[in-house]
């Protein structure tokens, strides 16, 4: 229990540090404007709206839609390359440790309210929703639907993304000019944000599980990312503690590196026989590290 708390506290600190790092332009929050420096040429690895007053980099999902909905391009090598690189190096470890919107959902879930367990059948179907969001709202609609000047729209950002709405709230709070522009779209996006907030208090990370297109892409790299979890089946006693503590309801004993796993490490901390370890690197170094971690269990 103590180890679990220690591991979770450590993870929360890393999440807070990452959120502060990706949103390091503090003046933006006070003055009600956004950062316009050259670092915005780079995409951050997380779902962090570039219109957040503190954002120092660009949101990869927003940038992807912006490029493919432009007049000039129908495909973004640059943004997809960056997302692929993040995915192959860290995979969904990004969701578990770096994403500010993941942190918000984690904190909301700590509110002592009754927790809801989604029916496994419904849950299994809803998990595919994020792939549909990725395919339809992030890729197809921005490419296919064009206005009279041949420009597409950023459908996911415009109609769904609650991270953007949060960014908007912080901008509007300190910028009276923007406050005058509120309309139906803002009300719609606020409804989505409120639903995500309320459901986050009841269900663990509902946005990550069911809607996040970035998590969907990173999930595709789950089996190949350099960061992997390993289960030593010879040590596993089948107590099921790992599966009980998993916030993403992953079947750790059967498929530990599934696309749904956000690599939060709770299973590792909960395992009483240290059967779960983690590795980072290419096969040889990873295998050696796995052997070492099994031989010398963490304190």
């Amino acid at each position: 229990m103590k180890k679990k708390l220690k591991q979770e506290t450590k993870r929360t600190f890393i999440q807070l540090a990452a959120a502060a790092f990706f949103n390091g332009y503090a003046a933006g929050f006070v003055k009600g404007h956004i950062f316009t420096g050259k670092t915005k040429i780079l995409c951050v690895p997380v779902l962090n709206c570039y219109s957040c007053p503190g954002a120092l980099g660009s949101c990869p999902i927003g940038s992807l839609q912006a490029v493919i909905s432009s007049r000039k391009f129908r495909f973004s090598f640059y943004v997809l390359g960056m997302i692929m690189l993040f995915g192959i190096i860290l995979g969904r470890l990004i969701c578990g440790f770096l994403c500010p919107f993941g942190l918000i959902q984690d904190l909301l879930h700590k509110i002592p309210l009754p927790k809801v367990r989604v029916n496994p059948k419904v849950d299994r179907i809803l998990r595919y929703l994020k792939y549909a969001v990725l395919l339809v709202l992030v890729i197809l609609l921005p490419i296919l639907i064009r206005n009279e000047v041949n420009m597409g729209y950023t459908w996911f950002c415009q109609y769904v993304c609650p991270a953007g709405t949060l960014a908007g709230l912080s901008l509007i709070a300190s910028n009276p000019f923007l406050a005058q522009m509120l309309g139906f779209l803002f009300s719609w996006k606020m409804c989505i944000l409120v639903i995500v907030i309320i459901s986050s208090t009841l269900i663990h990370r509902p946005f990550c599980k069911y809607l996040c297109p970035l998590g969907a892409i990173y999930g595709l790299f789950a089996k190949f990312s350099l960061y992997q979890l390993n289960l030593d089946k010879s040590k596993c006693v089948g107590c099921g503690k790992c599966e009980k503590v998993c916030p993403m309801d992953v079947k750790c004993t059967t498929d530990i590196n599934t696309a749904e796993c956000i690599r939060c490490g709770r299973c590792k901390a909960a395992c009483p026989v240290h059967a779960i370890g983690s590795t980072f690197g290419f096969d040889r170094s990873a295998r050696k590290a796995a052997e070492a971690s099994v031989e010398k269990p963490a304190e």
Binding site: T36, K40, C49, S51, S58, G164, A167, L171, L178, F186
Partner: peptide, 22 residues
Amino acid sequence: RNETALVLSKGKAICFACIGLG
């Protein structure tokens, strides 16, 4: 292909669609 110019220009301006203003 100079996609970076587009990413930068988008990132430097307030995205009204993203924040729900249109």
